[in-house]
Amino acid sequence: MSYLDYFCLSLKRDMQLAATQKHEFGLPLVFFVLVVLLVPLSVGPEINLLNRIAPAMGWIALILSMLIALPRMFAEDYDNGWLELVFISGQPPILAVLARMISFWLLYALPLVLSSILLVPFFQLAFEYWLVLAQTLLMGSFLITALGSIASALLLGSRKGSAVMALLVIPLLIPALIFATSAVDAVIQGLPNTGPMLMLAGISVLSITLAPIATEHSLKLMMS
């Protein structure tokens, strides 16, 4: 079996597992939508204020929603022993790790990025500003998935994994958060935003490149 076949079959297995547990990947989405709905209700109909906080709220909702799902990334396969089989199967474990990260992003992160369109009606955010925000959220979702996969692997078997996950991941997201909000702010003020966008893209690409290797080693460490 070629590596590509193995990778595709791993991806297919992840999708099949997700289909048996639909409620699992619906929960972060519901949380995200609720945050986006409840904040304008509590802040009140001040368009300028809502406009100003919309990018930050989009990002905070994305981070918190993904933190709900991240501890589950490898937990089930670790608990039932599937990960052990992957590591002694003779196939490169990094392919299964990569497949899991991609399926996680497709199932959990992408729906959240698409749902951020709700910021347009509820925060009175102009559509062209939302397009920029959505680009930053997209890059942020790659970053959170990458960093979260390492943290998720390191916290396998930990009872307080969810709480520690937030402590591990959120501080590392601060630079991305700053670049993302400044990119959207720059567009709102009519200034060029290439700099912060490129910095955000650079951070995301670096994380996506290194995270599968770090995750594979973390998983191996946790199993021995």
């Binding site: 193995y6 791993s10 099949q16 048996t20 039932n80 022993g81 199967s89």
Partner: peptide, 21 residues
């Protein structure tokens, strides 16, 4: 821990083992 996913059927589990090896 035998690598059996309890949300799947026996057939699905076996197919996944075959995929792995």
């Amino acid at each position: 821990k035998a690598g059996v996913n309890e949300n799947l059927t026996a057939i699905d589990n076996m197919q996944h083992w075959l995929m792995l090896t």
